[in-house]
Design a protein around this nucleic acid. Sequence first.
DNA 1: TTAAATGTGTCAAATAAGTGACAATACAAG
DNA 2: CTTGTATTGTCACTTATTTGACACATTTAA
Lengths: 226, 226
Amino acid sequence: MYAPYILVCEDEERLRKLIVKYLINEGYNAIEAKTGKEALDIFFEQSIDLLILDIMLPEYDGWSVCRSVRKESNIPIIMLTARSDEGDRIFGFELGADDYVTKPFSMKELMMRVKALLKRTRNISGEEKTTLGDITIDSKAHKVYVKDKEVDLSPKEYDLLHYFSQNIGIAVSREKILDKVWGYDYYGDLRTVDTHVKRLRKKIDISDVKIETIRGIGYRLEVNHE
Amino acid sequence: MYAPYILVCEDEERLRKLIVKYLINEGYNAIEAKTGKEALDIFFEQSIDLLILDIMLPEYDGWSVCRSVRKESNIPIIMLTARSDEGDRIFGFELGADDYVTKPFSMKELMMRVKALLKRTRNISGEEKTTLGDITIDSKAHKVYVKDKEVDLSPKEYDLLHYFSQNIGIAVSREKILDKVWGYDYYGDLRTVDTHVKRLRKKIDISDVKIETIRGIGYRLEVNHE
DNA sequence: TTAAATGTGTCAAATAAGTGACAATACAAG
DNA sequence: CTTGTATTGTCACTTATTTGACACATTTAA
C-alpha cells in the first residue's frame, strides 16, 4: 500500500511541526519546507502527491509557488492564510488551489480536507477507471476505450496515454516524458517521443481528446468539452 | 465443509472483539486487524474470503484499503461507517465495496449481510459451482465443464483456471500468477506461466471464455457475452 | 524566404509471446 | 519395489509485435 507524500510549506516552525506530526499520524509521508524556494526545490526534485502551502512565506509567497507548481502538475494544493479575506480565496482558486483553510483552524479540519482531496484525485489518477472526455482508461483491466470502443494500444502507447492522463492541460517537455514514461535512466533520442505521439494520436483519432503540440516545449493533452 | 476466513478491520477494540465473537459463533474463521496497514499485510499474506472494513482507521483509511484490495481481488467487502452520509456510501460502492453498514448496527444485521454476500460469492470462489460463460467449475468435485462436457484438467491447469476465475477481466502479471498459483515461495521461470496458459487454452478452446494476452504485462480472462 | 521544429512513413533490430519437444518428477497400479 | 503414465518445468526455436531511429515532408515563426 502506497502512502502519499505531502509537502508542508509553512515558515512558522511550531505550526509546521504540528501539521507534520498529524500527517504522519494519519499514515502519510510528510516533508517540510520553510520557504517558498525550498518548497519548489523539493517539489521539482521528488514526487509529491499533495501540497499544503502557507501564503505568507519568505522567498516567493504562496501565490508564486502555487502558480509554479500548477504549470507542472495537477496535484491538490491546500492554501493556508491568516486573513479570511474573500478576495484572497477567490484569487487562490483562480491560481489553481484546490482548497483553502483560514487560520486559525483545527488539525482535524485540515486532516479531513487532506483526506478528501486525496480521495478525489486518487480516483482520477488512481487505479480504477479514468475518464478523459470520451476516452476511458480501465487500468485494472489494462484496457482503453474511445467512445466505448476498445482500442488496442501497445505497452508504450498505453504508458504514454496514462502519463498524459495525469497531466491534463499541462505542457510536458520531451525530456520529462522520456523521464517519466521511459524511465530516468533511459538514454535515447528525444524525437522518439514524437514518433510515439504520432502513433498514439492516430489511435485516438476519433476522440475529442487531443495531444496538442507546444512548439519549442513539448506536448499537452487537451480534453475538448462540448 | 469449508469455513470461510473473514478479516475484520476495526480500530475500536470492543466492537472488533464483538464482531469476531459473533463470526466465530456463526462458524466462520475470524482474523483481526487494528489498522489499515495491518489489514493489508494480512490480506496479502493469506487467503481471505470476506473483508469487514471500518472507514475511519489509523494508517490508511478504509477507502485506501478497499482500493488496494480491489486491485488484487474480487472478494466481498463490507464497509462500516459512523456517518450515514450518502456520498460516502456512493463513493464506497464506486471503490468496489459490496455492502455498507452504518453504525450503530445490530450484530444480527451484520451477520445476515455476511451470510448473504458469502452465499452470493461462494458460487464464484467457494464451495459449489462457478459459471464463467459456458464454463462451469465444480470445485467440490474438482471438475470442469465446457458447454456441459467435462474436460480433463491437470491439477495446475485447474488451479490456474480457478485463479483466473477469481479475476475475471483483470490484468494479472506473470509474477502474480506464479505467486498465487504456484505459491509465493516458488522459484522458477516466469515463462512457465506461458506454457500452462497454452495448455489451458487448448483445453478450453471451444469455450467463449478466452485468456487474452496483454503484452508487457501478462494475461486476462475474458468472458465473451453474446 | 529561411531556419528551426515538428509530422510522418519506413525499416531493421529488439523484445515478447506462442509452441513443441524433452527430461525430470510425481504418482498410481500391479 | 517396479513399471507405466501423466504432469510439470525448462528450453530452444518460431512467430508476431513493438520499438527507436532516421530521412524526408511539412509547418511555423521570424
